[in-house]
């Protein structure tokens, strides 16, 4: 009640101060209205630019290709077809594009990268978060600085090393590259979480006779499960979406293509209809988006259940 007149008075004096260009209060209210309109417009704009491209992808993937060529502007397919998905998933021997196999390759590389990256990142993150040792701060800074190293600097020597070791065309080699790209950020993510695990819990475990590695495995890691999941998800998404190194190492071996590489290679040609490739894009996109949405909920649950455990 009392704030309103005060605001009006203050607005009035401000208005007078700038030369009496109308009442400050009236101007303020029309300003708020403009902002409200602007906000609605912005919300509609952002909803459109983020959702429409994906809707376009979905709609084209079930559209017969003749319809696309005859009427590129008509988005809604008059009759939907699922044959595009059959075409893109079936192996080449059955007349398809072999995406099922590529999905397998992508999953294999990504999961291997997740396992290796976590294995490599957990000890370092724990040490930097919890243990006072010589050079601790420098190591922490080093990991962050590595995040900024451009992939192009890594690409040349890795290309050469792999050619030399005969690892070109090996999915295992590719997984190692993805570990290189994700370990710095993984350390950073995990370390922030490890720092929040109460010291008392660890001290209790130590009093019960746990060694340091046992404490980490049995006490800290279970408590940090949500952050392990988040970090694993980060590595998975990077590995699943990666394109440059897959192109450098695997392009000569179609049997080992990841989905990203396969889609790009086929999109360059004219033989495969665009609608079939749209089905391929959907197949490539869906796992990442589903994982991402599922993990959002998992992370929220993990955090709250951690809270009442103390």
């Amino acid at each position: 009640m009392s704030a309103r007149p005060a605001a009006a008075r203050a607005g009035g004096t401000a208005g007078d101060a700038v030369g009496g260009r109308g009442g400050g209060r009236a101007r303020g209210r029309s300003g708020e209205r403009t902002v409200s309109v602007l906000r609605r417009t912005a919300i509609a704009f952002f909803a459109a630019v983020t959702v429409l491209p994906f809707l376009y992808m979905l709609l084209l993937s079930v559209k017969p290709v003749e319809q696309l060529l005859a009427d590129p502007g008509g988005l809604w397919p008059r009759e939907a077809t699922w044959s595009t998905y059959r075409d893109v998933l079936l192996p080449a021997s059955s007349g398809g594009q072999g995406f099922l196999r590529m999905l397998g390759n992508s999953a294999l590389v990504s999961l291997a990268a997740v396992a290796l990256a976590l294995l490599a990142a957990v000890p370092g993150a724990y040490a930097v978060a919890r243990l006072r040792f010589f050079g601790r701060r420098r190591v922490g800074v080093l990991f962050l600085a590595l995040y900024l190293f451009p992939a192009t600097l890594l690409a040349v020597p890795l290309f050469v090393i792999f050619a030399r070791l005969g690892l070109q065309g090996s999915l295992g080699g590719l997984a190692v590259v993805y570990v290189a790209q994700t370990v710095p950020v993984s350390v950073h993510m995990l370390r922030n979480y490890f720092a929040t695990v109460p010291r008392g819990v660890e001290e209790a475990a130590a009093l019960d006779g746990c060694s340091r590695p046992q404490t980490v495995c049995r006490v800290v890691l279970p408590l940090a499960a949500p952050s392990l999941a988040a970090t694993g998800l980060y590595v998975f998404v990077i590995a699943w979406n990666e394109f440059l190194f897959a192109l450098l190492f695997l392009v000569a071996e179609p049997g080992k293509w990841t989905v990203s590489l396969g889609l790009q290679q086929l999109a360059g040609g004219v033989e495969v209809p665009k609608t079939v490739l749209m089905a391929g894009s959907v197949v490539l996109t869906v796992p990442v988006v589903v994982l991402f949405l599922a993990a959002e909920r998992l992370l929220a649950e993990g955090l709250t259940s951690g809270a009442d455990r103390g």
């Binding site: 990142a121 040490a127 006072r132 010589f134 600097l153 370990v183 710095p184």
Partner: peptide, 22 residues
């Protein structure tokens, strides 16, 4: 200090091998 170095060295070794060396 010893535990810290022991814990951090595998991570540093991996990073050195796959990032710094290249």
């Amino acid at each position: 200090n010893r535990a810290g170095l022991a814990f951090v060295s595998p991570t540093v070794a991996v990073v050195a091998a796959v990032v710094l060396l290249p």
